[in-house]
Design a protein around this nucleic acid. Structure first.
Lengths: 260, 260
DNA sequence: TCCGTGGATTATCAAAGGTTATTGCCCGCC
DNA sequence: GGCGGGCAATAACCTTTGATAATCCACGGA
């Protein structure tokens, strides 16, 4: 594992959703794409655009925001290995703005190529569908986060989620992660005001649950943070690498129900 | 339209997502199912269950709640014609509790039958996928609702959404809808306390935006409610049937076919 | 008919968080 | 080497909403 090619994080992510063969990985490697770099808070897609390609995140973080400009609410965050706008593969309209959180490197892949890939590899087709469903589960969890937690546990839960998702693609192994976010970004993701985000972060620091200096963030007490946030990673639907394969997911999702 | 068979609302819903032929409708009609009735606040599915069938809502409302018991937060609501647990067709684990809001009639259809249906009708297969994506868009919108609106506009937006979704399957044509909800249900869906839900409803009544007596709810001033909630139905991804095209929404929703 | 129960309503009090403004720091830029 | 901009930290004040509790009302059962 841990190959060095551009899509290695995507391959990790997909492999966590379905069994991929060497052939599948080979198909992935050969997928044509255009690499692009974006600066912090730069827009990648705008509300109302039409799309004929997907945006795979290679490095950094992306966010969907409902309003373009300085202070729109963040409705989801992508980490490397994610396909931020996978849903456009099936419904090509864009509602929301896709904004880079910190510097980001993305690969654009035409929808056509992904569809071909789906046809040639049932495993990848299935993994893409499960990725879509996983995104949905994450979204539902954000609803719960905003609806039932206060600022402190909300921020804690968000940190847990991002850490778990990074670990799923081999990042943040030592609970140390790159954090080009501003406090206002965190505020926008937790739907709190920037000054209250500041209060909240300080509280987390005071409890020794968070070190955030410069562009690096470390979590000194992971079990403590998990306990505070009542974080249960089950909703992510991931088989964690380097862990005992506890559940062999059943084979219910079959590629043949997905229109090409 | 408005056929009387059990799945007519589902057919309406699917037909709004993809072009269905007479054959497709015929396949739907013949789909085997088990009808079941549930009482208010009765659980249909529980967190942790495994599932080998889908739950189509025929009459009433269902809700997903994250905690079972009296006061769990509601993370989504189903209206007639919805498949409340469609995602289990692809990932058969259940996270959350499916609870009836008021008396409800549902039809259970084995996953196997839906998969067969998908194989025999590409249009239905595609419609199911789009339904899944539509659910995702609705969920994203709930995130926005909780994150960026206060109690009053939040409740208003929820009412708009439910009304629009009902109209999509031929209900609530005159902005009069059955509402077996309690105020606490509304509170759980808006993530506010029951007493504040009461304050909010009274405010809506005072503004003449809502009549809610007994089990019937009417909206005397739809444009006013839409304005207050800043409701834009585009995210529902629906072609509205039988309605004056008052707003020429952005090109995403095509209105080129309007069945009689 | 009387009573019990669940939901709606109202009042009071307290907490969580929003708003605005000011200050200071760091860093890149001229 | 001074300047300006973005970001973090802090303070003062205010609004919204939550919690608790008491009352009231409608309805259905014994």
């Amino acid at each position: 594992m841990q190959t060095g090619f551009a899509f290695s994080k995507l391959a990790d992510h997909l492999a966590n959703l379905a069994e991929l063969t060497a052939d599948d990985l080979d198909l992935l490697t050969k997928m044509p794409s255009t690499i692009a770099h974006f600066g912090s808070h730069q827009a990648i897609l705008r509300h109302g655009d039409a799309s004929n390609q997907c945006c795979l995140l290679l490095q950094g973080y992306l966010s969907w925001q409902d309003a373009y400009g300085s202070e729109g609410q963040i409705t989801s965050i992508s980490v490397p290995g994610d396909i931020a706008d996978l849903r456009t593969l099936y419904r090509p309209c864009i509602d929301g703005n896709l904004i880079a959180l910190g510097p980001a490197v993305v690969a654009f892949v035409p929808h056509r190529c992904l569809r071909e890939l789906s046809i040639r590899s049932p495993a990848i087709s299935r993994a893409l569908l499960l990725m879509l469903i996983g995104d949905h589960a994450i979204q539902r969890n954000w609803t719960i986060n905003l609806g039932s937690r206060d600022a402190l546990t909300r921020a804690a839960h968000l940190l847990c989620e991002i850490t778990a998702r990074l670990q799923n693609v081999g990042l943040a192994r030592d609970f140390r992660l790159s954090s080009p976010f501003t406090q206002s970004d965190l505020a926008a993701a937790c739907s709190i005001s920037p000054v209250h985000a500041n209060r909240t972060i300080q509280e987390l620091r005071r409890c020794n649950l968070l070190h955030w200096h410069g562009k690096t963030l470390t979590i000194p007490d992971w079990p403590g943070l998990v306990r505070l946030a009542r974080f249960d990673p089950a909703y992510l639907g991931l088989r964690r690498r380097d862990q005992t394969p506890q559940q062999a997911q059943s084979g219910a999702a079959r590629a043949d129900v997905v229109p090409a």
